[in-house]
């Protein structure tokens, strides 16, 4: 059974111009390998498909450890011109917390 990412990691959302960031940090450093394997850019894009379009880039920072996801906001909208309620996309960080993580291999 997958467990929600929230049980394993904490997240932070940020924004810069028309780009948005999502940071993921395991509570236990030993779980970083699981996050590397499970929380891929493609799966994050799928999980948040309703809120973003376009590519998601993933940066790996094993010394923290952390994963950093960077994506373009829907339709390239900026903070002021977006028609969304949360124009900054700040709530996306917590939406990612329901991302299902499979702890075992396979």
């Amino acid at each position: 059974m997958p467990v929600p990412l929230r049980e394993l990691a904490h997240c932070r959302a940020g924004d810069k111009g028309n780009l948005a960031t999502l940071s993921v940090f395991p509570y236990d450093d030993a779980l970083f390998g699981v996050l590397l394997r499970e929380v891929t850019a493609e799966r994050v894009r799928g999980h948040l498909a309703e809120w973003l379009d376009g590519e998601v880039r993933r940066y790996e920072l094993p010394h923290l450890p952390a994963l950093q996801f960077v994506y373009e906001r829907t339709s390239g909208a900026g903070v002021t011109t977006s028609l969304e309620l949360d124009t900054h996309g700040k709530t996306l960080g917590t939406l990612l917390l329901s991302f299902p993580v499979h702890l075992g291999h396979g």
């Binding site: 810069k16 780009l19 960031t21 940071s23």
Partner: peptide, 10 residues
């Protein structure tokens, strides 16, 4: 760590 990566696009 959360603040370290906040708004960092690269």
């Amino acid at each position: 760590c959360e603040q370290l990566l906040y708004e960092i696009t690269d």
